[in-house]
Simulated scan of single mutants.
Amino acid sequence: MTTGAAVVQVVISSVVLLTAWLMPSLTGPTLPFGVRTPPDRVDAPVVAEQRRAYRWWVGGAGGVLVGAEVLLALASPRTPLSALASLAVLAVAGAGYLRARRAIQAVKRREDWYAGLRQAVVADTSLRTRPERFPWPWAVPSVAVLAATAVAAAVRYPSMPDQLPMHYGDGGAVDRYAAKSVGTAFTPVFVQLALTALLVLVTWQVFRSRADLDPAGPAASAARHRRYIVRLAAALLVLTACADLTVLLAAWQVWDGDRTFAPLPVLAPTGAGLVAVLAVAIRTGQNGSRLPVPEGEQDAEDTGTGVVHRDDDRYWRCGGLVYVNRQDPAVFVAKRFGIGWTVNFGNPRSLLPFGVFIGFILVMQLIGR
Results as ranks from 00 to 15, higher is better:
A241P: 07
L236S: 08
L267V: 13
L249C: 06
E295F: 08
A300L: 00
A233H: 04
P265V: 13
I282G: 04
V293N: 11
R310E: 12
L274F: 13
R259V: 15
R310A: 13
D312N: 13
D302E: 14
A241H: 03
A262N: 08
S221E: 10
W204K: 10
L201M: 11
Q298C: 06
L213M: 13
V238G: 04
V206P: 00
R283Y: 04
L198T: 15
G273T: 05
R317S: 13
D302W: 03
C242P: 01
G273D: 05
L213Y: 11
L248A: 13
V238R: 02
F207P: 00
D311F: 08
Q205Y: 02
T203Q: 04
T246I: 07
V202L: 14
D256I: 11
Y315C: 06
T260W: 05
A234S: 15
A243D: 03
D244S: 15
G285S: 07
P215E: 03
A220W: 03
D302Y: 00
G271K: 09
A223W: 00
L201Q: 10
A251F: 10
P215C: 06
L274W: 06
E295Y: 00
P263H: 09
V206N: 02
L278Y: 10
Y228Q: 03
V280Q: 07
V293P: 11
A251R: 01
D214V: 07
V293G: 03
C318S: 14
V200S: 08
R231T: 09
D244L: 01
A222K: 06
V200Q: 03
A281N: 01
P269K: 02
L249T: 02
S289W: 06
G288C: 11
T203D: 01
F261K: 06
V202Q: 10
P292D: 05
V247H: 01
W316Y: 05
P215F: 05
P265A: 09
R227T: 11
L245W: 02
G306Q: 07
G306W: 10
V238N: 01
A243F: 11
Y228T: 04
V247Q: 02
P292A: 08
R210F: 07
D312Q: 13
T303W: 06
P294N: 06
F207D: 08
G257F: 02
A262M: 07
E297S: 12
G257M: 08
A276T: 14
A223C: 01
Q205R: 13
R317A: 09
D313L: 06
P269N: 12
V206Y: 01
D302L: 14
G273Q: 08
A223T: 05
A272E: 07
L213T: 08
L198E: 10
R283D: 11
T284N: 12
H225L: 04
E301Q: 15
R259T: 15
L274C: 14
E297Y: 06
A243H: 04
A268I: 04
C242Q: 09
N287D: 15
A281F: 01
R283N: 05
D299L: 15
D212P: 00
E301C: 02
A235H: 09
T260I: 11
T305I: 08
R227K: 13
W255V: 07
P218E: 10
G296E: 11
Q205W: 11
